[in-house]
Amino acid sequence: MSLIDNINKAFDHRIRLGIMSILMVNDYADFNMLKEMLGATDGNLASHTKALEKETYIKVEKQFIGRKPNTRYSTTPLGKAAFKKHINALEKLIGK
């Protein structure tokens, strides 16, 4: 198996990389925090979170804070493991 095989296609985009990075070091993040940090538009961010959710790399919780709907994202154990593997692969590829 070559090193390239460990590069995860699901993370092959700046926004997805950003979402995963933020969720790795924070217990959770809500939609607005991700938007602020990544400088993404609503639609753009939503499509990337959906893609990651489909892979079950992130978990989505919808709830209400007062009357405002609030969407919270967090990583799943699977997502954490996959992202760690991805980082390791990147580091090895650079190190070569």
């Binding site: 700046r14 990389l17 950003g18 990075s21 924070n26 940090m37 590829l93």
Partner: peptide, 22 residues
């Protein structure tokens, strides 16, 4: 080159991790 892209990815990950937590 591909290698540059990986390097960029890594620095983006590091940047996001530190900026979102501190």
């Amino acid at each position: 080159m591909e290698q540059n892209k990986y390097l960029e990815d890594i620095s983006e990950i590091k940047n996001m991790m530190s900026r979102s937590s501190r």
